[in-house]
Amino acid sequence: MESWNQTSTDTVRSHVPEEVNKRIDEHVERCVRHMAQQERPEISRYLKKLEREWDLNRAVMVVGSLAAVLGLWLARRDGRGWQIFGGTAAGLLLQHGLFGFGPLAELVRAVGGVRTRREIDLEKFALKALRGDFERIPKNDGGPLARANAALVAAQS
Rank of each mutant, 00 (worst) to 15 (best):
R80I: 15
V60W: 01
D133T: 03
Q156Y: 11
Q38P: 03
T9W: 14
Q95P: 06
A129F: 02
A90F: 09
H15T: 13
W82D: 02
G87I: 05
I24R: 01
L74M: 15
I137L: 06
A89N: 06
A148G: 03
G132N: 03
G91L: 12
A126R: 02
A110E: 12
H96C: 04
A75G: 15
L122M: 14
G112R: 02
R147A: 03
G86A: 05
F85I: 11
N149Q: 15
S65C: 08
A155P: 07
E119L: 10
D141Y: 10
A151S: 15
L47W: 04
A110T: 10
R77P: 07
L92F: 09
A89H: 08
F134Y: 13
L98C: 07
G102W: 06
A146T: 03
I43R: 01
R45T: 13
P144L: 04
V153F: 09
G100L: 08
L92A: 12
D10T: 02
A154L: 08
L66E: 04
G87T: 06
G142T: 02
A89Y: 05
V28L: 11
R147T: 01
L56I: 03
V28G: 02
E18D: 10
G100P: 01
Y46K: 07
E106D: 14
L92R: 03
R109S: 15
V111K: 11
D55I: 01
L104W: 07
G87C: 09
E18K: 05
R77K: 15
F125C: 13
E29T: 10
R115F: 08
E51G: 02
D121L: 15
A154N: 14
G97A: 06
G81E: 13
V108W: 04
L127S: 00
A155G: 05
K128Y: 08
N21E: 00
I24W: 00
A36E: 01
M35W: 06
Q37M: 10
S14F: 06
Q6G: 10
N57P: 02
R13V: 12
R23E: 12
R13S: 10
K139D: 13
E18C: 05
S3R: 14
A105M: 14
R80A: 13
I43E: 00
V16R: 05
N140M: 14
K139T: 14
A75T: 05
R52I: 03
A59G: 04
S65F: 08
R80W: 13
M35D: 01
G86D: 02
V114G: 00
Q37C: 09
A151N: 07
S157I: 13
E39H: 04
H27M: 13
V153M: 15
S3F: 11
M35H: 01
N5A: 10
G79K: 05
Q83N: 13
P17D: 02
L47F: 03
G87Q: 04
V16C: 06
L93I: 10
H15Y: 11
R30F: 11
M61S: 07
V60I: 05
G71I: 00
A105W: 08
E2Q: 11
Q83F: 12
L92P: 02
Q6I: 12
N21Y: 00
E19Q: 07
L98R: 11
L56W: 04
T88Y: 11
R77D: 14
R30C: 09
R115K: 12
T88G: 09
K139A: 09
K124E: 13
R80L: 15
L145P: 01
W4M: 05
L94Y: 13
G87F: 08
L152V: 06
A146F: 00
